[in-house]
Design a protein around this nucleic acid. Structure first.
Length: 105
DNA sequence: CCGTTGACTCTTT
DNA sequence: AAAAGAGCCAACG
């Protein structure tokens, strides 16, 4: 058992669930997550991630912007970059290669 | 309930 | 190519 997600958070829960579906070594975008939960609240996704009550349990560092840019990170973008590299992600000019980005979940 | 904010994205200049 | 504007949705005060 890795991590049990409380099933009452609604929107947030949906986002976290999708994010947990992202395999290691890959990343996703806020847009993909939003689309996966059936909403266009790209920004709301970011807010939930920032508040992220499930901090280390939810790999929020695997979420980047649509342009392949890191986007943001509550602990610092440098930190996020390091974690992604540790996951096996290869960066090109400070951006994630398209092949690592899951545009759809 | 209304207004502001935000780890976004797309379109237009 | 880079910058600015508009649009979108949920959480908070």
């Amino acid at each position: 058992m890795v991590f049990k997600l409380p099933k009452k958070e609604g929107f947030a829960h949906a986002v976290y669930a999708k994010l947990l579906r992202v395999p290691k070594g890959k990343v996703t975008t806020y847009a993909a997550l939003a689309h996966a939960v059936g909403t266009r609240a790209y920004r709301a996704i970011g807010q939930v991630m920032n508040k992220n009550p499930y901090a280390p349990d939810v790999p929020c560092h695997r979420v980047i912007s649509s342009d392949g840019n890191l986007g943001g990170y509550a602990g610092g973008e440098k930190r996020k970059l390091a974690m992604l590299k540790a996951e096996g992600i290869v960066f090109k000019n400070g951006k994630v290669e398209e092949k690592y980005i899951l545009r759809e979940l």
